[in-house]
Design a protein around this nucleic acid. Structure first.
Length: 437
RNA sequence: CGGGAAGUAGCGCAGCCUGGUAGCGCACUACACUGGGGGUGUAGGGGUCGCAGGUUCAAAUCCUGUCUUCCCGACCA
């Protein structure tokens, strides 16, 4: 993408309403613009990141055996009256009336709808287990939206729903999501720690929140420093196997949010306890027949008897992750994107836009990178070199190529790593293939 | 919902107390210079001062109401 033809409205100054790093940087880099409190437009750069995050979530869900579908944003109130949550959900649910006076709502979650789909279509235990998910926009009319996309009212969420015949099988489905989540967040460069959680309005008795550490996190968290040694990506798990050992390993160490933590009763000694602030990026629940029973979602077992199915639900805050990743990875100059979610892998800067030779060489590098399938943002604008450097650091692409007359004379371009700040000279002819790997 | 703050050009702000020509920096447009860390100059364009009432000869400025946004708390992917 040529920057001169792109839509990337960056800001030199921080808008007054942005208080935390990720919000400031998302506005300054032109990733998002606010429409109303807690409601954002995703501009091209932000959308690219959102899609990258979404793709990783999707890949890991698919690997874990979940099946993607898509449910609507607008729902009828009928199902919610059936589950009893139409009243319970309170003002957080955005209620809408259509032209016929029918009560509709913008879905804050989809347990009711998926349960309805399930009960209509699935009648036999032979069709179990099944785990269905979608990635769809949700709306929760938060009392106080804040921190940009971290606590928006409209947000993109992946929510999966598992259905099993027995509680034991249900726990297996839960474990599969547990492991998939560990991998999902690790692939985005995040250190996420599963913590025992309150089940809140969703209900049930088995639940974990996945918390990523960030100074600006909303809640205080406490955990064993032993988590440092765990690496979710070390081994590729086989989702057909029993995953309980992996879950046991991750839940063997102490980890609690402030609501669950008790200083006087903490099993971990002070010197191995880490205190920090965290952002919740995923939450998984196993809640048995809480919805299947009132909504009549049952299958026939081998004896032909109806059995209420055992359900779990599993959420990832996709749009929130964009903010969380920035919180976890930035410096004074801007964002530092982990390569897996970077909007582009490489930023190419032409430092001599008036020089025909320099421009021609940059154009060639640009074309080579594209041919090799490397996502590149090419700053071909005729602005000063300083503006390009500063802008590129702000956007935070993992690799920067700078080529000006100076390098051109020696046949080299400068390659900078945004994470380490390390710069090296690379022969112009080699640079595209060096970045292609 | 309780407590606090703010709405003036795309962004950051001054002006308001003490009513009388709407301003500054950045951004934007044109031209020239410059070209390895948001460079320099010249000339420009852009604002019903959140909205609605009221007071007044006259309101960004005073009064009343209202909407919106942000921050702190109780709730949440």
């Amino acid at each position: 993408m040529r920057l001169s033809r792109y839509f990337l409205p960056t800001l030199k100054e921080t808008p007054a309403e942005a208080q935390i790093a990720s919000h400031r940087l998302m506005l300054r880099t032109g990733m998002v613009r606010q429409g109303a409190a807690g409601i954002y437009s995703w501009l091209p750069l932000g959308l690219r990141v959102l899609k990258k995050i979404e793709a990783i979530v999707r890949e890991e869900q698919d690997k874990a055996g979940a099946i993607e579908m898509l449910m609507p944003t607008i729902q009828s109130s009928e199902l919610w009256e059936e589950s009893g949550r139409y009243e319970d959900y309170g003002k957080e649910m955005l209620r809408i009336e259509d032209r016929h006076g029918r009560h509709m709502l913008f879905g804050p979650t989809n347990e009711e709808m998926i349960t309805d789909i399930f009960r209509r279509e699935i009648k036999s235990y032979k069709d179990l287990p099944i785990n269905l998910y979608h990635i769809q926009w949700k709306f929760r009319d938060e009392i106080r939206p804040r921190f940009g996309v971290m606590r928006g009212r409209e947000f993109l969420m992946k929510d999966a729903y598992s259905f099993d015949l027995t509680p034991e099988d249900g726990v297996k489905s839960y474990n599969a999501m547990f492991v998939a989540y560990l991998r999902t967040f690790a692939r985005m460069g995040l250190k996420a720690i599963p913590m025992r959680a309150d089940t809140g309005p969703i209900g049930g008795d088995l639940s974990h929140e996945f918390i990523v550490l960030a100074d600006t996190g909303e809640s205080e968290v406490f955990f064993d420093k032993g988590f440092d040694k765990f690496d979710p990506l070390a081994v590729q798990p086989n989702f057909g196997d029993d995953l309980q050992p992996i879950v046991d390993q991750w839940t063997s160490l102490y980890a609690a949010t402030e609501e669950m933590h008790d200083d006087t009763n903490c099993p971990v000694s002070d010197d191995s306890l880490i205190k920090g602030r965290g952002v919740e990026i995923g939450h998984i629940f196993f809640f048995g027949d809480k919805y299947s029973k009132p909504m009549g979602a049952s299958v026939q077992n081998a004896e032909g008897k109806p059995v209420d199915v055992q359900m779990g639900s599993y959420g990832v805050g996709v749009s929130r992750l964009a903010g969380a990743i920035i919180e976890a990875s930035h410096d004074d100059n801007g964002i530092i994107w982990p390569e897996a979610v970077a909007p582009f892998k490489v930023g190419l800067m032409n430092l001599g836009p008036k020089d025909e030779n320099c421009t021609k060489t940059c154009d060639t590098i640009y074309e080579e990178l594209q041919e090799k399938g490397v996502e590149v943002l090419y700053d071909d604008r005729s602005v000063g070199a300083g503006a390009k450097f500063t802008n590129m650091d702000l956007i935070g692409l993992p690799w920067q190529i700078a080529l000006g007359k100076r390098g051109l004379e020696n046949g080299v371009a400068e390659l900078k790593n945004r994470v380490t700040g390390e710069k090296q000279e690379v022969a112009i002819n080699d640079i595209a293939s060096k970045l292609a790997s």
